[in-house]
Design a protein around this nucleic acid. Structure first.
Lengths: 114, 114
DNA sequence: TACTTATATAATAATTTGCTTATATAATGA
DNA sequence: TCATTATATAAGCAAATTATTATATAAGTA
């Protein structure tokens, strides 16, 4: 076997989670940068509660972590997730989403909370 | 880029399709053997129409092909699907399901339509 | 031809999903 | 303290999903 394997049931759960364009894009974006909720709101053109609900599902699956930095909550990929290798091999097939970050910057909407 | 990429939207559609334990298992099984509907019915403990509906979704996505051999309809992976590389890299992480075939054979339920 | 076996399709019901709006909580700053 | 900004949670609703049962179609066989 080439790779470490993951139980079919667990894999199906992850695939279902990522079988949504918004969440899949979020995970691909988080592969190269951290993002706060308000940035996702700008990018995905849906309501703030909708975004909160998506990131919550990712968090419940252990795929992302959240860190509060003053009034913002920053989301990042959880490098310690046991399913990350599986997820990583999957998102490696997706085109980079860096242009979304650049759009944010051009609109002056990138958060930098230092 | 290491791999050929697949559009995010297309990827999300495939992941949603495979985000179901039954369909994901089917695809993993079809990676090493062809199966007919009645065999899937035995294996998955759901009704025959439920199985037909699952394989239909896989077929609509171009992931499997069907061949009629006398009264049986045999399903196989469509080697020409443009998303097969993506799907393949994903199911490579799943444990082999050969034991299911062996169970079928032990119960005398393996179809051989020659 | 009539019966059996294998499969597909239609109709339907229960559950889940993904959004919305309204509201609560948490941190910041005047 | 009070207002503002960022985020989370709750409630409600429409659409999608996945199973079921009933029925249609297709092939094989007596």
């Amino acid at each position: 076997m080439e790779f470490s394997t993951i139980e079919i049931e667990k894999a199906a759960t992850i695939l279902k989670l990522l079988g949504d364009k918004t969440r899949l894009t979020m995970v691909k974006m988080l592969d190269t940068n951290d993002y706060c909720v308000c940035e996702f709101v700008e990018i995905f053109k849906v309501s703030q509660p909708a975004i909160s609900q998506h990131v919550r599902k990712l968090k419940d699956a252990g795929l992302v972590r959240e860190t509060r930095r003053s009034q913002w909550v920053i989301y990042s990929l959880n490098k310690e997730s046991d399913v990350l290798p599986f997820v990583q091999s999957l998102i490696d097939h997706l085109p980079k989403q860096d242009f979304k970050l650049q759009e944010l910057e051009q609109q002056g909407l990138r958060i930098s909370c230092e």
